[in-house]
Simulated assay, not measured.
Amino acid sequence: MTEPRDPQVRQLDARSLRGLAHPLRMQLLDALRFGGPATASQLAEKLGESSGATSYHLRQLAAHGFVEDDPERGKGRERWWKAAHRGLSFDDSLLTDADPAVRGAADMYLHEVATTQTQDLSTWLGNRSSWPDEWNRAWDMSSYTLRLTPELTRELAQKMHALIETYRDRAADADDADTAQVRLHTHTFPLTPDGERPQ
């Protein structure tokens, strides 16, 4: 029996991946997911792009179902956009798809995600002095090196994800002054001795 999929998490397939795998589109989607609804002009200012570029790429994201109109705000001349899903799910089979364009899009998508995660951490390190002491005592940047089989590695990643999910709804009201959006990155991958590739 398979577990039901979370309707708030979009499962990427070959077609939707090709519609998303563009640096600006990924930035726009993240801006809407984590910053809330916005107009193309607001997003252009935030990302340092032209409103023409953000408008075009927002329409492309909408065509692939990643963003949608925000009816609560779209009453004036400007069109307001919001993210259509809370998260995305990437299927590793996209990396071995028969179509080289899909494989290229999958590789580009993963590298953009990795770049964004590195930027997130660097931004925190650069700005942490402006946060209250409580937050400076709560953050974490750790690494562990374990010797595991692929099966144990997969089990560990699944358990970490399950634990994180138990915290999703535990926070106080979003308007509570003590809360903030907290970003968690999990990276689990094999290392080889002295940078050698396995034969």
Rank of each mutant, 00 (worst) to 15 (best):
K82H: 03
W131P: 03
A177G: 07
S41V: 04
R10A: 06
W124T: 04
L110F: 03
R103S: 06
A40F: 02
T192A: 15
W80F: 12
L191A: 06
P132N: 10
S122G: 10
E151A: 12
S41T: 07
E3M: 09
G19C: 04
R73S: 07
T179C: 08
H64N: 01
A162H: 13
Y144F: 13
T149R: 10
W124R: 04
F189D: 11
L43N: 00
R147P: 09
R25L: 02
T39R: 00
H85D: 09
R10C: 06
A44G: 07
D178C: 06
R137C: 07
D97R: 06
M108I: 06
L58G: 00
P4I: 01
T192H: 15
P4C: 03
R73Y: 06
R79A: 00
D194G: 08
R86Y: 06
L152A: 14
F34Y: 14
L156M: 11
F34C: 05
Q60P: 02
L184P: 01
Y109F: 15
G195H: 09
A84D: 04
G48R: 06
P23N: 04
W135A: 04
M108W: 11
R128L: 15
T123G: 07
T153S: 15
M141L: 15
Y144D: 10
W135I: 03
P198L: 01
E165G: 05
G74H: 02
R137I: 07
Y167T: 06
N136D: 12
E196G: 08
P100D: 09
Y109H: 14
R154Y: 07
T116A: 15
E165W: 11
H22Q: 14
I164V: 14
A180W: 04
L156N: 05
N136F: 03
A171N: 08
Q117R: 10
E165M: 14
A138Y: 13
A84K: 02
L43A: 01
R79W: 00
Y56V: 00
T179G: 04
S93W: 14
L29Y: 03
A105S: 13
H187Y: 12
P4A: 08
D13M: 03
M1F: 13
L163S: 13
R86H: 08
Q199H: 12
A40K: 01
K75E: 11
V102I: 08
P193Y: 12
A180P: 02
D69E: 12
S55P: 01
D169Y: 11
W131M: 12
D178P: 01
H64I: 00
L24C: 03
T123Y: 10
Q158I: 00
L121W: 13
H161Y: 11
D176E: 09
R197P: 14
A21T: 10
P132S: 13
D91R: 13
